[in-house]
Design a protein around this nucleic acid. Structure first.
Lengths: 251, 251
DNA sequence: AAGTTTAACTTGTATATACAAATAAGGTTT
DNA sequence: AAACCTTATTTGTATATACAAGTTAAACTT
């Protein structure tokens, strides 16, 4: 009188090595393998928790944990009352670590130094106010810093900071500590946006960065939020010959 | 005779709105708030599950779920026998979605088309063999495709493919379907690397991309793995004036 | 025929319990 | 003093149970 098990669950653990590990972890592997091998297609419905319980002989909470974690990882999608489905193929996204430039230089074993070209406090222009999401009556800090690796300019940093959110920004010494470090303390950033472009630098920028007028630059524009308020916008200009962004993705 | 509760847990839910949601979710919010507000510092030990159970009056499994999920999210770290700790500040990393170029154009509402400039099968050169991690005796496919958005060149794609892993690569029509789509079917990529640079295009590339010789390009070099074998290397060249990479990060 | 109710099935959450495994601290023995 | 054992604490896993809530389809009523 045994109920027939769902044929989708045949040989569920066939290709999963029998290493000592929790049941739920093995179940996750087994399901991930079914999907990676194409046996379970995208958007297809997978067996219900109850069916897995019957087929595998574990408790429902264990099955639930495996399915819940796979859902958090984007492998599956679930809908109450309906069932569990193989998630459609994820868009590949690369992770670009956005380092503090001084640490990045140090990690390459280079010597780092910075020159502060400008640091002022004033009312925001219309454009700055729009970018920061504030009024033109509010005050901002404005800084321009040139960063060096082994005495060669590696980054020209123009930054506009909401003075209300980072009131001590103007009294820091940015030849000792990068703005990034101070801002992380003053208003820890919770969100941000990046825009990466290849641009032609102006003549002034070429002179500052000590590059030929023909050399392109990698420009990164950044806006960072701290609890729903824009703290700072930055424009980072890197000589194309001395800088590259590295990214890695998996899954 | 009530045991005194851990003072770290005072006013745990003080700033958490009383919206209808599961207990474990509210607990996660409360803990995340303690950390974000600086009340619980990095690397500091947080109250044990048992202490939270006593202070909040929920079951240990519920506390465990909240702490386990926060650990999976990188907010906490846990060690069996020792306790739970506030994770040190994460490095900020931006997520750059790497789309299929045809979909990207379509999502902007543009019209897409492609021209196939080259498609051949031959033995790998030394450089190609090194990049793909194969021997020079093995065969590769080599393709050059020019992608258009609204009849303007938007990407020049040079690709080298491991012929052993994607044997049908040579018999596809890449004016109908991008290599990305075929490769995803033939050998689903599990990992990859990106290298983003601002470069000066060659004269030939300028002519193909229909840009001035002074215009820089955004170059993306990509290597993608499928189960520990390199499937393909690609060099994607975008006119600087017509392309930008967008990224977002949070936490 | 159309609308309503019911039943069956699904996932979601919460609890109580049990034991395993890692860690640290204290005490005991050698 | 060093090695060993014990104990308490902590997290990790697994189970059984219960009820809530969303979905679908069949059964029923009007």
């Amino acid at each position: 009188m045994s109920k027939t098990i769902n044929p989708l669950l045949n040989d569920l653990f066939a290709h999963i090595p029998d290493t000592p590990q929790p049941i739920y972890a093995r179940l996750k592997q087994a399901i991930a393998h079914k999907i990676a091998s194409g046996e379970w297609q995208a958007n297809q419905r997978v067996p219900s928790e109850a069916e897995m319980v019957a087929a595998i002989g574990v408790s429902r909470m264990t099955v639930n944990r495996a399915l819940r974690e796979l859902t958090a990882e984007g492998i599956l999608t679930r809908q109450q009352g309906l069932g569990t489905f193989v998630a459609p193929q994820k868009a590949h996204s690369a992770l670009f670590e956005v380092h503090n430039i001084s640490e990045e230089v140090a990690s390459r074993g280079g010597t780092y130094r910075a020159e502060q070209l400008l640091l002022e406090r004033r009312k925001a222009t219309m454009e700055e106010a729009v970018n920061l999401g504030i009024r033109t009556t509010q005050e901002i800090f404005c800084s321009v810093i040139l960063h060096f690796e082994n005495d060669l300019p590696i980054q020209l940093e123009e930054r506009v900071v909401n003075a209300h959110l980072a009131p001590e920004y103007g009294s820091q010494d940015y030849t000792k500590q990068t703005p990034y470090v101070y801002l992380m303390k003053a208003a820890p950033m919770t969100e941000g946006e990046h825009l990466v472009e290849a641009v032609v630098p102006t003549q002034e920028e070429c002179e500052l960065l000590k590059i030929e007028a023909t050399e392109p630059c990698l420009q990164i524009k950044r806006r960072t939020w701290s609890s729903d308020q824009i703290v700072t916008t930055a424009r980072l200009l890197h000589p194309g010959s001395r800088f590259q962004l590295f990214g890695h993705f998996s899954n």
